[in-house]
């Protein structure tokens, strides 16, 4: 079995700060991590590899330092890792990104046919969830999004059954291989890398592909040129003119503060008081 897992290296958005003066993102010092959603995809792929044997090839489009993210994936047990990196990719939106990734996957498929492509649900920096569907469309493979569980895989019969999260319930879908799966979070628990895995990853020769290596045919479809969406401005949220009406427990007591608070709220919002009374008496 040959599975390709697409990942992205992203800034750890939990640690991102906005520069209070220039209102821009402060990237320095914010560690770059493997997009957490991608790890669920990777673990699922590794479990299939454990079951069926074969290879898991990691794929990432990014700047040179994204190599670290691929290395981390190798430490979990992936077989191979390819970093598609080229200045020409800079500024790509999701449409241009899916074009580049699809081309690279086709190239990878020439070395060994690909049975499944996995991606995470979305990234924590873009949050669009668009690249997975885009890649599937371009490769002409079946798209299975928000997969919570892989129910069955029949490698010889080229069939796969998955549970897909929908509103109010779960769809049981059956499709054929190859397919592209975007994996839901919380669906599995990542394994721990052994010492050997860590050392192997530290030494691993991550393959680097530029746009030619990745088989990009139409340069107008990558990078900024290939991106229909344009960011016209970036800004911080409008600060509210007045800060909260503050009280401190340290000044008086929790009792006083809470009684004060209730008095203020209910004076200003009598309807709210009515509503809460209704709820409690119900």
């Amino acid at each position: 079995m040959h599975i390709v897992v697409c990942i992205k290296q992203v800034p750890d958005s939990a640690q991102i700060r906005v520069h209070p003066v220039t209102n821009t993102i402060m990237r320095q010092g914010v560690p770059a991590i493997v997009n957490p959603y991608d790890l669920f995809a990777l673990e699922e792929a590794l479990r299939l590899k454990d079951r069926f044997g074969g290879r898991v090839t990691m794929l990432c489009m990014g700047p040179p330092q994204a190599e670290d993210a691929l290395r981390k994936c190798i430490s979990f047990g992936a077989t191979d890792a390819i970093l598609v990196t080229d200045r020409a990719f800079a500024g790509a939106d999701t449409l241009a990104t899916s074009y580049a990734l699809a081309a690279a996957i086709r190239k990878i498929g020439q070395e060994q046919a690909v049975d499944l492509v996995f991606t995470g649900k979305q990234t924590i920096d873009g949050d669009t969830a668009q690249v997975g569907p885009g890649v599937a469309k371009r490769l002409g493979v079946n798209l299975l999004t928000y997969v919570s569980r892989i129910a069955e895989v029949d490698l010889d019969g080229r069939r796969i059954q998955v549970e897909r999260r929908a509103e109010g319930g779960v769809q049981l879908l059956e499709s054929t291989l190859p397919s592209l799966i975007t994996m839901l979070e919380g669906t599995n628990e990542m394994r721990f890398a052994s010492m050997d895995d860590m050392l192997r990853a530290a030494r691993f020769p991550v393959r680097k592909w530029n746009k030619e290596d990745a088989g990009i045919e139409d340069l107008a479809k990558i990078g900024l040129k290939g991106s229909p969406t344009i960011v016209s401005k970036v800004f911080g949220p409008t600060p509210r003119s007045t800060k909260a009406d503050m009280q401190s427990v340290a000044d008086t007591s929790a009792q006083d503060v809470t009684l004060n608070l209730l008095q203020k709220i209910f004076t200003a919002h009598p309807m709210l008081e009515e509503e809460l009374v209704e709820r409690l008496s119900a």
Partner: peptide, 9 residues
């Protein structure tokens, strides 16, 4: 000895 499986180096 490290906190990983096979953690002796």
């Amino acid at each position: 000895h490290c906190d990983r499986m096979g953690g002796e180096v």
